[in-house]
Write a protein that binds this DNA or RNA. Sequence first.
DNA 1: CCGGTCTGTTCTTCACAGCGGAAGAGTAGC
DNA 2: GCTACTCTTCCGCTGTGAAGAACAGACCGG
Lengths: 252, 252
Amino acid sequence: MKNRPVYGIQSVDHALRLAALLAQEGPLRLSEAAERLGVARSTAHRLLAMLVYRDFAEQREDRRYVAGPVLRRVEAPEPVTELRRIALPHLQALTEAIDETTNLIVVVGDQARFVASAEGTQVLRVGDRAGRVLPAHLASGGRAVLATLDEDRVRALYGRAGSPVADVDALLRDLRRVRRRGFAVNDRKTETGVTAIGAAIPAPTAGGVAARAALSIALPTARYRRDRLPEWVARLTTTAERIAHELVDDQA
Amino acid sequence: MKNRPVYGIQSVDHALRLAALLAQEGPLRLSEAAERLGVARSTAHRLLAMLVYRDFAEQREDRRYVAGPVLRRVEAPEPVTELRRIALPHLQALTEAIDETTNLIVVVGDQARFVASAEGTQVLRVGDRAGRVLPAHLASGGRAVLATLDEDRVRALYGRAGSPVADVDALLRDLRRVRRRGFAVNDRKTETGVTAIGAAIPAPTAGGVAARAALSIALPTARYRRDRLPEWVARLTTTAERIAHELVDDQA
DNA sequence: CCGGTCTGTTCTTCACAGCGGAAGAGTAGC
DNA sequence: GCTACTCTTCCGCTGTGAAGAACAGACCGG
């Protein structure tokens, strides 16, 4: 039996026990969570709110809480530390050039995960989303990666029962368009007031994490200008290519 | 983008962010974790210790931390709240009869999870392990459940590369013995100074959570008496049968 | 529809738990 | 053995986390 750490953190213990309960037992009422943890209902409510905020829990319509995406992973984690290390200086240079927030994204299953961000300096800007998850079929970087996949693979991913995509054919048409243009735009589909442009990192080899990685520029919709799109796209794809080249160099 | 809860808990936020980093990016050094969270190394160390304690992280020999079992689940959670509700009074009655700690266990994949415990009142006793995880092939309740499975299924579970079981044939021989006797004993294989006797709950129907549930009596090895084993086994299997009957009634 | 019960959410106060700096310990390479 | 790097332990202090209470919402039965 593991011993409690000497310098344990009680609040963290409560949160982790609750997360494990959700993962192992499924739907829980707030009042039951409070009882199981031996805390006040208001404390349990605060803990659940934090778990929901960080995607360890979700609240259903019947008000019960269930495990969130982080606890519902269906694939083993893959190390992306190296990709992040290589990409980050390029992200920062791109952000410096355009003074908008840029992101490194990895697609796992049907989720687009923000691995790294570099924030612009303007007062109104999109914040750091590292660690967050968006549906891949809506996010700009997610769609840029999906556009690099075989159509059969996309069908396998989104054609199953319970899929978040009602019309796979419409998605495939969108992805063909993304493929032709070389980038994808997400205009407020996932976040109010945010427009993002995404482009996939050209994969040096099939497989590996870079085969599912993308960059995106995320800016307040108020600053999105159609006439600047070619410039943003050019910088985005140039940066993606630089990262791809450095990944090759790093492997040699 | 989700808003931070109004009554957020900073320490919990740190822990959950760190857990998500481990899940998404794999191996992390303590110093890198500290930098990523923006906290002191001593704080990161405390957080990682809590994550390890609650099975959200593991530390490898090279000292890096990786995602732990809770974050590495490969199966969707199943609700066991109902099973727990039905079983708990019976657990408590059994504990009262023998004054030793009893447990309800559910096997998921190759893990035996403690869903509920009822503690004896003696000064030296096995504590409440609800929420904990043990390897199923070593735990008494885990082995009792594995003994109810097809041998092909056990082979599929433990015959793969990277399996924790080196000799599947030896495991199958053990499980045949468990099946014949109707119970399994775990004498200090998972926890120093603890001996446990486990018996599976007879499944009312194939599938469902009860098909992978077991009860166990856990006592200090110093109090384990071979001549009391028949009594303990009889009480254990009687209790398991009562629970199984009540599960059937509850579905009608 | 109303009242009662149950459950979830919001707010405030205060004491002690969580944080970080510093010291100590461990590891790896030359 | 020495140096540099990294991890682990310890302690004091203040602001954060917990819980009580009030409020709000949901549900059910008469």
